[in-house]
Write a protein that binds this DNA or RNA. Structure first.
Length: 426
RNA sequence: GCGGUUGUGGUGAAGUUGGUUAACACUCUGGAUUGUGGCUCCAGCAUUCGCGAGUUCGAGUCUCGUCAAUCGCCCCA
């Protein structure tokens, strides 16, 4: 058979059992968000390009990986590559900063788009769940937010993970550190790999992460983030760590941890499996953004949030035996034999109106085939309607567990089926 | 965006140094069982090997291109 169409690279179809698994994951997310007082927000999947791309944005995600296009009115639009920026836009546009109840705690679930080379756990259309707590600056808010994600992945059956955490300091600390790194590495420019040349220009913090050069001598005495934290940032970070200790959340300070996005300040973190195998293993990650809201014109408010990659999270949960779902058996499977017209449909509709799920067989095949189909549907009850039944206005009701069959007047059908289904629950 | 590996039916897969009708298993469809499934036994189901071109008397098997998946880099959820 010729395959004329296929899904775009880096996308996937979700169906059968997988959909149920995803629904279950989303259910867990919604329940736990409610426990923490987070409310859902749904923003557009595309926004004006400027929402995502700031003036001096240095991240690859923004500069190389966005789906940007001109709409028919000639405006530049971009499919959202992440959740935070759109939420901040919305927060400011609707003047949520004026609320007496800050921080505003919002969560979102939905597709995100990045144009990169797909791999396992890395798609062009992928799905993120994320939270944002906007309008407060408190180390315990950082801790609580990390804990929210932690509770969610635990509820999905994920264990053996840890938090990697670091502090970038406030904006002054951060830029001081950035300059220090640049100064430190510039004399060694000739010895650095090509990737590091680029990094040094765009995002000097990432040089520290280089897999090619990391063992060189001049890396060992490179300045460390923690040395550049001022008193306030230092104290803030200590309180975050203390809070994680108190909640029993396992973490590891990683002074090389830098997030890809430009807007982070102070706390940044990433949650990864402990026996770190794949490259795309980060489950959820985020941090504080002090200054983002202001850059959108919303006043001097601090925020904290994270994004969780659902494909990765669900895959990991399944690997570890979590998110098990059962098939969804149908209550009644209606078999039609011979010319019965709409008799079967009328039966099914009467059952459905009583809240009993019913599926009709439209294949016009033999009885054996229809019974097999009923078996695949895992139906508890099979109703057989043939020409004799139509004539006498009766139905044959078969209990698939007891393998007993009764013939009753059509009027008593619902009652008898209910009795069988009830027996099943006991 | 760069490099490596892979690509045979609904599924899992055999396919030897290129040689006539693409093994086997599961599933599915029909029958044995004239209106009753889960066991058993028969029978059937890929004009075609991701797609396109080339080499050859002849290609699933070789070459090139292309698409896709996957691994590493980059980046990140």
């Amino acid at each position: 058979m010729e395959n004329r169409y296929q899904m775009p690279r880096g996308t996937f179809d979700l169906f059968d059992q997988d959909v149920i698994v995803w629904q279950k994951a989303e259910e867990i997310i919604r329940e736990i968000c409610a426990l923490y007082g987070y409310e859902e927000i749904r923003t557009p999947v595309f926004e004006a390009t400027e929402v995502f791309k700031g003036e001096n944005d240095s991240s690859d995600m923004v500069n190389k990986e966005m789906y940007t296009f001109d709409d028919n009115g000639g405006r530049s639009m971009t499919l959202r590559p992440e959740g935070t920026k759109g939420i901040i836009r919305s927060f400011v546009e609707h003047k949520m900063f004026g609320s007496p109840d800050l921080p505003r705690k919002l969560f979102y679930i939905g597709p995100m788009f990045r144009y990169g080379r797909p791999q396992k756990g890395r798609y062009r259309q992928f799905h993120q769940f994320g939270v944002e707590a906007i309008g407060a600056r408190d180390p315990l808010l950082d801790v609580e937010t990390i804990a929210l994600g932690w509770q969610i992945i635990k509820a999905m059956g994920i264990s053996n993970v840890k938090v990697l955490i670091n502090s970038l300091g406030d904006q002054p600390s951060r830029s001081a550190y950035r300059n220090a790194l640049k100064q430190h590495f510039t004399p060694h420019l000739d010895e650095l790999c090509p990737d590091c040349h680029r990094r040094l220009e765009q995002n000097p913090l990432r040089v520290l992460d280089c897999k090619v050069d990391r063992d060189r001598d001049f890396f060992k005495d490179a300045p460390s983030t923690t040395e550049y934290l001022n008193e306030e940032s230092r104290n803030y970070f200590d309180k975050v760590l203390k809070g994680l200790d108190d909640l029993g959340i396992e973490y590891e300070i990683d002074t090389h941890l830098v997030r890809g996005l430009d807007y982070y300040t102070n706390t940044v973190f990433e949650v990864v499996p402990k026996d770190d195998d794949g490259q795309q293993s980060t489950i959820y990650a985020g941090g504080q953004y002090d200054g983002l809201v202001e850059s959108f014109g919303g006043g001097d408010l601090c925020g904290f949030g994270f994004g969780m990659g659902l494909e990765r999270t669900i895959a990991l949960a399944k690997e570890q035996g979590g998110l098990q779902v059962e098939g969804k058996p149908v209550d009644v499977y209606v078999i039609a034999i011979g010319e019965v017209g709409d008799y079967g449909l009328r039966i099914a509709q009467r059952l459905r109106s009583e809240g009993i799920s019913a599926v009709l067989d439209y294949t016009h095949r033999g009885m054996k085939g229809q019974f097999k189909a009923a078996e695949r549907a895992q139906s508890r009850v099979i109703i057989i309607a043939g020409e004799d039944e139509v004539k006498n206005n009766t139905v044959n009701i078969k209990d698939t567990e007891k393998r007993e069959q009764i013939t009753v007047p059509s009027a008593e059908m619902t009652e008898k089926v209910c009795a069988i289904l009830k027996g099943q629950e006991e």
